[in-house]
């Protein structure tokens, strides 16, 4: 197990290294002055300029510059946003939790929708209900997430007026920033009408969560359905049925665990796709997450922010994937006998 962990850690370090190399290269590939892209400071005052040159090692060769870059990243100095003038790490700390919060809720919701429907379809393999669910999921999968989001806004926000369409919570509630997760922050805060704030935040959450969750749920349905169908046709299930167990007994005792274990890694992998969808949906719902923030940065050509955002999202994805790998191995030690790293 320790050898396994070490290998994972090694893979983690190498991957992060490649990402930092790529983001460092971006400074050269973005239009404009490399040093300005790196630091976010456009200074033509000689004294200050010399200081920046020295700080980023631009009076040395490119390898040294990269070394300085790594050192600054490690220290938490990711540069300054050229549009707002704020520290990039501070800005990311404000926006990244909002994205993670949205993604986690959407992931949970998609599992709660997808797995039961997947089981239902798998257990009724090739019957009308199965074909119905399968067609619905293929249809759902073909709908682009941004279009679905707009449809939901049109129907629930504009036509029916049930739900709000932008932001995380009405701006009238001034929730102090604590963890960045709005529900936790509301509970932690000492604002007068917590109940109202909570329900307001939940109402803001419904449409964005739903649009991401529905798209992911369609994939979950298909993965689960396939696995259930395979397991239910396997020999040990038939043997159990032949011994006279009822279908529910067979399913709960032998089917369920054997169905879920092999698909867990596939389900977990959906999280990265979901994160991408979340970043798109954020823009539509003006959700103050990192997707929205990156879009703004692209719009005003704030290169330090783009670089920082890309790096932050990559690190989140890498850490998440590796953690899940380890967790899955603990749950199911039979899997991943191979100790070679994959990502």
């Amino acid at each position: 197990m320790i050898a396994y962990l070490l290998r994972r850690l090694n893979l983690f370090v190498v991957t992060i290294f490649v990402v930092t190399l790529a983001t460092f290269a971006l400074n050269y590939l973005f239009p404009g002055d490399t040093l300005e892209n790196l630091s976010g400071i456009s200074s033509h005052q000689t004294a200050e300029y010399n200081q920046i040159v020295q700080y980023h090692g631009f009076d040395h060769n490119i390898v040294y510059q990269y070394g300085m870059y790594l050192q600054h990243l490690w220290k938490g100095d990711w540069g300054i946003s050229s549009s707002s003038g704020n520290d990039i790490v501070e800005e990311i700390k404000l926006v990244l939790p909002a994205t993670l919060e949205l993604s986690v809720y959407a992931m949970v919701l998609s599992l709660f929708i997808g797995i039961p429907f997947g089981f239902w379809a798998g257990l009724r393999h090739r019957r009308p209900i199965d074909l119905g669910i399968l067609s619905a999921s293929v249809l759902g999968y073909s709908i682009p997430v941004f279009w679905l989001a707009l449809l939901l806004i049109l129907f629930f926000a504009l036509q029916l007026g049930w739900l709000p369409m932008s932001g995380r919570i009405s701006l009238l509630y001034d929730i102090p920033h604590y963890s960045g997760f709005i529900l936790i922050d509301i509970l932690k805060s000492d604002i007068p009408n917590k109940q109202d704030a909570l329900s307001n935040a939940i109402r803001h959450m419904i449409l964005p969560t739903l649009s991401i969750a529905l798209v992911t749920a369609t994939i979950v349905i298909r993965i689960t359905r396939r696995s259930v169908a395979d397991v239910m046709q396997s020999d040990y299930i038939r043997a159990a049925l032949a011994r006279g167990l009822t279908r529910p007994q067979v399913f709960w005792r032998h089917g369920l665990r054997n169905t879920l274990l092999p698909i867990l890694p596939q389900l977990v992998l959906q999280f990265t796709t979901l994160l991408t969808n979340a970043m798109i949906v954020e823009v539509i719902f003006s959700w103050p997450g990192i997707g929205n923030w990156l879009m703004q940065a692209v719009y005003v050509q704030d290169f330090p922010a783009i670089r920082g955002g890309v790096l932050a999202v990559s690190i989140v994805v890498i850490i998440f994937t590796l953690l899940m790998d380890i967790v899955l191995r603990v749950i199911n030690p039979l899997k991943n006998r191979d100790i070679h790293g994959t990502i």
Binding site: G161, W162, L163, S170, S199, I202, R203
Partner: peptide, 20 residues
Amino acid sequence: LGIGACTDQHTTRQQLDGFI
């Protein structure tokens, strides 16, 4: 989800005092 939807037209004191 239901709680969220049910409270829709519920205007709180804070919303009345604030202007967006």
